[in-house]
Design a protein around this nucleic acid. Structure first.
Length: 669
DNA sequence: GGTAACTGGGTTTTT
DNA sequence: CCCAGTTACC
């Protein structure tokens, strides 16, 4: 019946097996870091499939698309399922997009709606903030990125602006009225432009599930709904899950409160804790057996695991392994040299570069390390931080491509118009006013050109006629090609380093060759942006060896034999940006826990005495201790593991500060 | 009235 | 390095 290379239950321990084979009552798996929750989910999907459940009846919601694909395809392989018959899987946003796009009429949405990414949302907010006395004058107004953030928080946490503002954004409170006006305008403009931002996707999905007939019908399509990383859902996503499985039948949720690190996106660790209460007949399985790390790494992890109700204590059968180290460095550049020296040392002892990762709180914390790596010609790859889609030229291209299918898209128009010389914000705005959104503005391009300043007309008409021409190309690849051809001249005029940028775009265009239609390709690109241009490259060399640099957030769910954690200094880790509220510090604490538990064998902590940016705590922030309490815990735990410290080691222990100096000679080097 | 070119201050995390 | 604010030019 099934062609089964390996059994899906192979190597699972009793608890994991229990979770994987659980019946259809609500199941909550609390899984500490490295306890095999991915394996459990995969095995559960495989076991359901083996029981004969049709793949379409299973929905797997994950945090990244990669995780979904990995689990779904592994489960399918385990039971020998082939081809197109696969369970449905994806991020909340990707699945929302799928459902919403299938029911546009019911939702009163335009058929060819576009997806507005966060950067686009900022552009739109920029476009309208002037109308709401949120710019100009001598006052300092919230930046458009902040406005979008506030907007998103209101939606994802179901909180009213007047309630959210005083507690979370007190300095914006004086502008509350203007902000409310801007938000109203913001939603209107999105509607008029046939655009849905990330929040709208979730809102629309929830609305669809609330539909009296369709909602239950859609929910009943799935006998089993599995949610990964539940600690990172926000109230809006909780609503969606509840509607997909009102009584909890067939619902499986996996998560770890101590790894909830997306508060800024509205998630709240309490949502996992209170879930059991809302499904009274739920089964809770708690996984504490760690299969990833050496005991010495776990000792540090357990020491800093934030005290929660679940009392998870990780244990491992693996040998203790080398003790974690904490290295104090004089400043950030000493630190950079130290980290790189450690990487090289491990490399010479036989650890591949790609088995080592450098994890940082904020993308720019690795700046000096990146320089040091480049100088020493050590290849590295960076995840998190600036994304491919954030590069100006990529945004230009995507905007131009969006106009083809959706000529009412104000955000895209605004960007494309401003690409041209002598067209700035003000002219772009007035040109847009000239042709009503309801008409096909791309076909009416001569009207737009006529309104442009004379110096800009030739370029503008070339671009716009080129874009209109692109529309007649049938294949998505050809269309993308034509779009690039249409904007190539203006790009050359705008960027002095066009050549490098065109290489990126050529690669992007090439990837459009294998898709069915351009609009959904753009939506996919927006919902799951490639992390770097490298991701678009056809075939990465298998023998390629590089160090991974990643933000802790982007490292979630991943592991490496050796993990380096630099920049453990107040202001950086924990980030002083997070210290506005007590919950902020708690989340930083969990972030540290996530970082530490990425290590399989070796953990190396680095703490510079000073960092380049001399920012001081502001009045509206809680002042912080010289060394935060969780680093103190890590230090103590690390010290406990050091049997014979190499002198000179100095320890100053108090609740406020505990520090070790291991590499004191570095100070004078 | 609007654009381009320059200056100075500030930099979290991401679907 | 990106953004906002300023100034000099069209």
């Amino acid at each position: 019946m099934f062609d089964r290379p390996t059994s899906w239950d192979e190597g699972l321990d009793d608890l994991q097996l229990e979770a994987a084979t659980h019946g259809d009552g609500p199941l909550i798996v609390t899984a500490g870091a490295g306890t095999g929750k991915t394996r459990v989910l995969t095995a559960r999907v495989a076991s359901l499939l083996e029981r004969g459940l049709t793949p379409e009846r299973i929905l797997l919601l994950t945090f990244t698309r990669r995780a979904a694909e990995e689990m779904v395809s592994r489960a399918a392989d385990l039971v020998g399922l082939r081809g197109s018959e696969r369970p449905q899987g994806g991020t909340f946003h990707a699945v929302a997009h799928r459902h919403v796009a299938a029911y546009t009429e019911v939702l009163g949405l335009p058929r060819g709606f576009g997806v507005l990414d966060p950067a686009g949302a900022c552009d739109l907010m920029d476009l309208i903030r002037g109308n709401h006395s949120l710019s100009g004058g001598s006052t300092r107004y919230p930046r458009s990125a902040t406005l979008v953030e506030i907007y998103s928080r209101c939606i994802n946490n179901d909180r009213v602006l007047s309630d959210l503002l005083p507690s979370e954004y007190p300095w914006c409170e004086p502008h509350q009225h203007a902000i409310a006006g801007a938000f109203r305008d913001f939603t209107n403009r999105k509607r008029q432009s046939a655009l849905l931002d990330f929040d709208d996707l979730l809102l629309s999905w929830r609305a669809l599930l609330d539909h009296p007939h369709l909602g239950p019908q859609i929910a009943e399509r799935y006998s089993f709904v599995l949610v990964d990383e539940y600690q990172d859902v926000n109230p809006l996503q909780v609503d969606i899950v509840r509607r997909l499985s009102p009584d909890g039948r067939g619902l499986t949720v996996v998560g770890d409160q101590a790894q909830s690190i997306y508060g800024f996106r509205g998630s709240d660790p309490r949502l996992l804790r209170t879930l059991a209460g809302s499904y009274p007949d739920s089964t809770i399985i708690c996984l504490e057996k760690n299969f990833r790390s050496r005991q010495s790494v776990l000792s540090v992890a357990n020491a800093i695991r934030p005290p929660e109700e679940d009392r998870i204590h990780l244990t491992s059968d693996r040998s203790p392994g080398p003790r974690p180290t904490l290295t104090r460095c004089y400043d950030a550049s000493t630190e950079a040299r130290t980290v790189v020296a450690c990487i090289l040392e491990a490399h010479e002892k036989g650890t591949l570069l790609r088995d080592q990762a450098i994890l940082v709180r904020a993308a720019h914390h690795s700046d000096l390390i990146e320089i040091e790596l480049s100088v020493r010609r050590i290849p590295f790859r960076k995840y998190g931080g600036l994304r491919f889609l954030d590069a100006a030229h990529v945004k230009d291209f995507v905007a131009a491509a969006r106009l083809i299918d959706n000529p009412s898209d104000d955000v895209a128009w605004y960007r494309v118009l401003r690409l041209h010389r002598n067209i700035g914000p003000a002219r772009a705005r007035s040109l847009l006013e000239a042709v009503a959104r309801e008409r096909d503005r791309l076909a009416l391009w001569p009207e737009i050109v006529a309104g442009a300043p004379p110096q800009a007309r030739t370029d503008l008409s070339d671009t716009l006629s080129g874009l209109l021409g692109a529309r007649s190309a049938a294949a998505p690849g050809e269309r993308a090609d034509a779009v690039l051809a249409a904007i190539r001249p203006v790009l050359s005029a705008k960027y002095h380093d066009v050549r490098a940028r065109l290489v990126d775009l050529d690669r992007l265009v090439a990837s459009a060759n294998v898709v069915d239609d351009l609009a959904s390709w753009l939506a996919d690109l927006t919902l799951d942006p490639p992390i770097s241009t490298g991701d678009l490259a056809a075939d990465p060399h298998l023998d390629e060896d590089y160090v991974v640099i990643s933000t802790v957030h982007s490292a979630k769910g991943l592991e490496w034999p050796i993990v380096h954690l630099p920049h453990l200094v107040d202001g950086a880790m924990p980030s002083d940006m997070a210290l506005r509220t007590p919950e902020g510090l708690e989340e930083e604490h969990r972030l540290m826990y996530v970082a530490v538990t990425r290590a399989r064998d070796e953990l190396r902590l680095y703490a510079p005495l000073r960092i380049p940016h001399h920012r001081r705590a502001r009045d509206d922030r809680h002042s912080f201790a010289p060394l935060s309490r969780f680093l103190g815990e890590a230090v103590k735990a690390t010290l406990d593991l050091i049997e014979e410290p190499r002198a000179p080691v100095r320890v100053e222990g108090s609740d406020q500060a505990a520090r070790v100096v291991v590499d004191i000679d570095r100070l004078w080097a």
